[in-house]
Amino acid sequence: MDVRLYLAQRISAAVMLPLVILHILIILYAVSDGLNAVEILERTRGSLFWGVFYGLFVVSAAIHAAIGVRAIAREWTPATGRTLDYGAVLFGLLLLVLGARAVSAVVL
């Protein structure tokens, strides 16, 4: 890992922290208020705020996890150099696609 990856991982973590806290608070609110899935979707569908909120989370998680998995692969597998880089990019893209599908299902 070099300084660019280090910073990207720290910044993405800093972005995710408030999002995760708010996400957990929302879960507590939804559960305590007895909202069902239909009622939750009524609130999120067409909402720019929730689209940006979870879109940002997905992007940050994809960056953060891809760099983390790259570091683990560097230390625990024989992979080095370009193999690591391409593997991390592919993993990040996979998370991005899966996350984007989930966000679109909630917001669109």
């Binding site: 890992m1 070099d2 300084v3 990856l5 280090y6 570091a71």
Partner: peptide, 9 residues
């Protein structure tokens, strides 16, 4: 120390 193998590992 900022390159690959540097302090960030």
């Amino acid at each position: 120390i900022s390159a690959n193998g540097g302090c960030h590992n």
